[in-house]
Design a protein around this nucleic acid. Sequence first.
DNA 1: CACGGCCCTTGGG
DNA 2: CCCAAGGGCCGT
Length: 325
Amino acid sequence: MAVLFRLSRRSYRGSGAKPGKSAAWYNARVESGCVAGLSREDLDLAATLTSGQVFRWTRAEDESWIGTVGGRRAKLRQADDGRLWWEADGPDGGAFIRSFLRLDDVDFPALAEGWCARDAHFAEAWARQPGVRVLRQDPAECFFSFLCASVAPIARISGMLRGVASAYGQPLGCVGGVTLWAFPTTTQLAEADEEALRALGLGFRARRVEEAAGVLAELPPETLSALRGRPHADAKRELMRFFGVGEKIADCVALFSLDQDDAIPVDTHVWRMACAWYTPELRGKSLTPAAYARVGEAFRDRFGPFAGWAQQTLFYRAAVLRARA
DNA sequence: CACGGCCCTTGGG
DNA sequence: CCCAAGGGCCGT
């Protein structure tokens, strides 16, 4: 594992020239299939893709969802009976989709049943919206997504990331009426300077993205994905070496892309719920590192090794459903 | 260690 | 028009 160094502000500034993206036709073989035996409790595709863990999926006119994962295009549609119809770039499109949705390694309804019996607040959130899974994202896209997510509503995060992808990522043509770009590689993203990123609406996040891309471009491409399987504390410490990455963002990356299912990202919503329900002794206090650790402990104590999944259902209720109300 | 000021912008009321 | 939005850093 390469050692990552937290950089101070880089003196070098790139030219800002955008990489050529004209002659990029993507010709991977498209595969298709169906995942049978899925219920709405196993997966609610629409809720999962709008739950604030991914930001570049769009709904097509035929109710299907179009997006990319790690440079592969995918089209997903969940039928009323729960079955999931998919199209994706090969090879092994079916395994690729199952991995993204974590269908093979997490029995979500079984976990939720236990949590409903144990926790009335989870039960209420689950009754309103079951099937909000935690995805296995591409670690690099997840990392930059949450670097852009500071103090921004989901709609704005989506706008920033679409801008970044279309400016610096590989064009992948049009699927179901939706124009797709791969999320830029760190090498491509390292071409962006702060000014260009600010022009895309990133605001104070522009410097953070520029510096992180510059660091990652000098490291092996698998640097972030190599954090999978590392102890949570180690992975978190590595991530927090980047300027702009604190505990919350590190936990988001760990949970949503590194299979760290017990990571608890403590944002304002989770903090409020914790103070109200799980850690009343923290009411009125500020979210210090000690308090942050205490909230994570309380969630893990209550929900166990997949506490991050419980957190996502509670977050969906507190943030997404409330925002729509 | 705890607290507050500050950073950018924009979607939505 | 105004506000709040899934933070983090840097001072005190």
